[in-house]
Amino acid sequence: MKIEAVYKEARMTQSRRMLVLRAVVEDYIRSQEPVGSSSLTKAHDLGVSSATIRNDMAALEDEGYLIQPHTSAGRIPTEKGYRYFVDRLATVMPLSQAQRNGIATFLSGSVSLQDTLQRAARLLSQITGQIAVVTSPSLSKATLRHVEIVPVGVATLLAVIITDTGRVAQHTIPVLHMPSAAELARWCELVNRQCESLSFAKAAEQVRSLSIVGISEQITALAESLAGVFESMADDERANELYMAGASNMAHRHAAADLAPLFDALEEQVVIMRLMSTVGEESDRDGVGVAIGSETHTPGLMNVSVVTSGYGRSHNDDTTDQQDHRDHTGSFTDTSGSADSTPVAFVGSIGPTHMDYETTIAAVRAVARYLTASLAHTGVRDTD
């Protein structure tokens, strides 16, 4: 019984220490000043004396959760302390209805996909006060929505390809002999009917297999060329564009020397996009991933945290499309939750390790869900 009592007391002590850690992280995020035992006693009802809290903070320092920047100062969280705090967030408070309505109102005024992504970056930056980054959907993860092929010269056709994510790609196709307008229209209609909602790899296979009575050599050659276009789009692994906002906000709040490594890292857009993809795909909190300091494995980001989430959904060709709808407020709501879907792009926030994680996670998640629903809405909207 004595051994059980010792174990019980040890568990209670460790549990209390973790409450002390959470309180230190919360206070430091709010004040950005080292936190002492006296201030914790006054601000939090921890049920023990200041001396006990002081002992707990010393133990947390020994365990690597806290660090004391100066001998006479209070303590601040380490990366390990922040990681424990983020992993133990019981719930992330969603944005208020007014905030969600504001997101919908601000982004619904967009005139194009590019405008939507630019607006999303500006809005996320305004909510968090940090750098916001939004990548555009990768063609390799998109599916075919519609293709139109029109003559633009005596020996040139233009293929206008619209994806389910709203992107429009244009490819010129040289031809030795121009098919007739009627034959071209008939064949385009068949391609759209047979290939809609297929990945571009599958669409390429389907185009090559299509045959109609009386097909001409011109159409046969065109089919091979269009299949090649679809294959090149399927091989495009790049999120072609990256939209960023909020760098000036960070510059005004921090010394330029402290931000130089961060700004240098942001110049390497391929590195940032790869990082967002990696962190987002490893997410375990409602689709939101968090990398703290050295977890980014990026030299210029050792003193910042990255919060990111995927948006949009890319499905296997045999899966059911997601269902998105507008709720009673007019805001978009993502109801897919499909385990067979993967993001087509990412949205994220980059800020100091002492960022307000709860607000940032909620904001990134809300913007990502809006973008997911917005792309789905675009995918069923008339192109006229």
Rank of each mutant, 00 (worst) to 15 (best):
H177N: 12
T163F: 07
N192R: 10
I215T: 12
V134F: 03
L222Y: 09
Q206Y: 05
H252D: 12
G153K: 05
H252P: 00
H177R: 14
R238E: 15
T163C: 10
S197E: 05
A182C: 07
M244L: 15
A201V: 10
A142H: 02
S211F: 10
E205W: 04
S197W: 12
S225M: 05
Q218I: 03
F200Q: 00
E224R: 11
A204C: 08
T156F: 11
A203G: 04
E241D: 13
I212S: 02
G228E: 09
E189G: 14
Q130E: 12
V152G: 04
V133D: 02
V207Q: 02
E148V: 08
Y243Q: 08
P174G: 05
E189R: 15
L139Y: 13
I127F: 06
T156I: 09
V154D: 04
A132H: 02
G246K: 02
A169L: 10
S225Q: 13
M178G: 10
T220R: 15
P151D: 09
V150G: 07
M244Q: 13
L210D: 01
A256V: 07
A169Y: 13
V154W: 00
L226F: 08
E196G: 08
I162S: 09
I215R: 04
L198N: 02
P179R: 02
F200S: 03
H146Y: 11
F230T: 08
A159M: 11
E183S: 14
T128Y: 00
V133K: 00
Q206D: 00
A204V: 07
V175A: 08
Q206T: 12
R193Y: 08
C195F: 06
R253T: 04
P137V: 11
S140T: 05
A251P: 01
G153V: 06
A142K: 04
S197L: 10
L190E: 11
H146D: 10
A223R: 15
A203S: 05
H254A: 06
H254R: 06
C195T: 04
R186K: 14
A234R: 07
R145N: 13
P179G: 05
C195M: 03
A132Y: 06
L158P: 03
E217L: 13
A223H: 11
A247D: 10
E189F: 13
G166T: 02
N192T: 11
D236Q: 10
G153S: 14
V133G: 01
E241W: 08
G129R: 04
E196K: 12
L222A: 12
V133E: 02
V150P: 06
L222T: 10
T163Q: 06
M178C: 12
A203I: 00
I173Q: 03
A185D: 02
A247V: 11
A201S: 15
S199A: 14
M250S: 03
L210G: 01
A223T: 07
L176M: 07
S225C: 03
V154C: 00
G246S: 06
A159K: 08
E217T: 15
A132G: 05
L242W: 06
H146P: 00
V160N: 13
E217Q: 12
L144N: 05
T165C: 07
V168A: 01
A223N: 14
C195Q: 01
H146F: 15
A223F: 09
R186Q: 15
L184N: 03
Y243F: 15
S225F: 04
E205P: 01
R238Y: 09
V160E: 13
D235P: 03
V147Q: 03
I212T: 02
I127N: 00
N240Q: 11
